[in-house]
């Protein structure tokens, strides 16, 4: 990466060749890329991987910024070129980078549950349910018999609203009728539950997700009210026995 080639070097007659410098840079870029690619394989050495954990991400960013700069500066010749070209290219680049940073921090703020009250987890469940039923004045705190009995009334508001949530969010994996889809979602219409069939079990399945997010956690995307409604709906499907995915887990009595 010689600095020799700014525009003044070409002042008289034949510009000299940068061939050697280009090839050197090509080799350097290849080596850097190889390092980047080797990084994931460090995972097979957990001691090293874990020790350097906070470093990998900044390292990758630094390496790619280097590659970016090298290609723009040397291959595209911007480094030794006119100021007008630098201005034309670098100012939009700066704006684009700003947009990019804003978007990614915004994404974190909006979706990552690091504030109080954003995420609903299992420990909020009981309390949340109690509060909701108390304020609506409907039911006393949860007893599973009561909970089960509530499904008798398929026209209840819980059921209707819960079905809407199900159609919107869950049916892509669990099927139109809750019958499940191969490799996507379990059958929710049989008598078996892999993780249990009480309100609390089902709420936890939906709010926190299961099986390493194969059943995706809905705690940060649905309101606790919506989760409650969809859980009612899901529980009402039990025993409708739509043909679909096989029974997984223990049979749960009504």
């Amino acid at each position: 990466m010689s600095a020799a080639h700014d525009s003044h070097a070409e002042h008289s007659g034949q510009p000299h060749s940068h061939k050697a410098a280009y090839i050197r840079l090509g080799i350097l870029l290849t080596v850097v890329t190889a390092v980047e690619l080797a990084l994931p394989f460090l995972k097979t050495y957990p001691q090293i991987w874990d020790a350097g954990q906070p470093m990998w991400m900044p390292l990758l960013v630094a390496l790619s910024v280097f590659k970016f700069g090298a290609v723009v500066g040397e291959f595209m010749h911007l480094r030794g070129d006119r100021g007008i070209y630098k201005f034309l290219f670098l100012s939009p680049l700066a704006i684009a980078a700003t947009i990019f940073l804003l978007l990614s921090t915004l994404a974190m703020r909006l979706f990552l549950p690091f504030g109080e009250g954003l995420a609903v987890t299992a420990k909020d469940v009981q309390a949340g349910y109690v509060k909701a039923t108390k304020s609506s004045g409907a039911e006393p705190p949860l007893a599973d018999e009561k909970f089960n009995a509530a499904f008798a009334d398929a026209k209840s508001k819980q059921f209707v609203d819960g079905k809407a949530v199900f159609v919107r969010v869950c049916k892509v994996c669990h099927g139109d009728m809750g019958e499940g889809k191969p490799a996507l979602g379990l059958n929710l219409t049989d008598d078996c539950y892999k993780y249990g069939g009480t309100f609390k079990d089902l709420y936890t399945s939906v709010a926190d997700g299961r099986a390493g997010n194969k059943m995706p956690s809905q705690g940060s995307t649905l309101k606790s009210e919506e989760i409650r409604q969809v859980v009612y709906y899901v529980r009402s499907l039990k025993g409708t026995n739509v043909a679909g995915e096989p029974c997984v887990g223990d049979k749960v009595a009504d």
Partner: peptide, 16 residues
């Protein structure tokens, strides 16, 4: 320069 913005927003959207 304008392509920077174009791809910047596409990559930003992916990230978002």
């Amino acid at each position: 320069g304008s392509e920077c913005m174009f791809f910047g927003s596409l990559i930003g959207t992916y990230f978002f």
